[in-house]
Amino acid sequence: MTYLLLSTPFVFAALVLFGIGAAHARRRDDLRRYLSAWGASTAVLLVLTTVFDNIMIAAGLFDYREDGISGARIALMPVEDLLYPIAGALLLSGVWQLLDAARAPGGHSDA
């Protein structure tokens, strides 16, 4: 099984939850803030993942089977490794939005 195939259901589930969160944000006229917060957090996660995965691979802490990756790499790190922070940011953004909507009186937040 490849890492891309292993990541696919998680990314799909995260996209569904992110979409539900986006629908809630749109109803609250908060979609721009929702998307920009996701974009900023995703960018930070991608940079940190790229830097630290390369450091850990270079230090010999772990590596990937060649038959489990696409072959495309950013330095030492396979590009599939970026799916985890993307899925995490999608999932957490959706959950945060839904929790904020549930917490606010009447489903609307003043924040």
Rank of each mutant, 00 (worst) to 15 (best):
F10V: 11
S41C: 14
F18A: 01
D81I: 07
L45S: 13
L6R: 15
P105L: 13
G106K: 07
L82S: 04
M56K: 15
A87P: 04
G88V: 04
A43V: 13
G88N: 04
L4P: 09
G21Y: 06
G39H: 13
A14H: 06
A75R: 06
M77P: 05
L92C: 04
A23C: 09
L17R: 02
S109K: 05
Y84M: 09
R33K: 11
A111G: 10
A37Q: 15
V47I: 15
R26Q: 13
I74G: 03
I57F: 10
D110I: 03
S7D: 11
S41D: 08
R27T: 00
L90I: 03
A23G: 02
L76K: 06
W38F: 15
F62Y: 15
W38P: 02
G21E: 01
I55F: 14
I86G: 05
G107E: 04
M56L: 14
L91P: 05
A75S: 08
T42G: 09
H24I: 14
Y64R: 10
G88W: 05
I69N: 00
E66L: 07
T2I: 02
L48T: 14
L31R: 12
Y34C: 00
L4I: 06
I74W: 07
F18R: 01
H108G: 03
M1C: 13
R73K: 08
S36T: 14
V11Q: 01
L99N: 04
A75T: 09
Y3C: 05
V79G: 03
E80P: 07
H108Y: 08
A40D: 09
I20M: 10
I55K: 10
L35V: 12
A59G: 12
L45D: 11
P105N: 06
F12H: 01
A87G: 07
D100Y: 01
A25L: 00
A102I: 00
A14P: 01
G68I: 05
A87K: 10
R33M: 10
T49M: 12
L31S: 07
D67F: 07
V47M: 12
D110E: 13
D63A: 15
L99F: 11
L92N: 09
L83Y: 05
D53G: 11
A13G: 05
L46W: 15
W38E: 06
A111R: 12
V16D: 00
Y3L: 10
H24P: 00
A14E: 00
F62W: 15
A101K: 03
I69C: 02
G94T: 01
F18I: 01
Y64Q: 09
I57M: 12
G94P: 02
A59M: 15
T49C: 14
Y34M: 00
L17A: 06
L90V: 05
E66I: 05
M56H: 14
S70G: 07
I86Y: 06
A23H: 12
A23Y: 11
L46I: 15
L99Y: 02
L45M: 15
Y84Q: 13
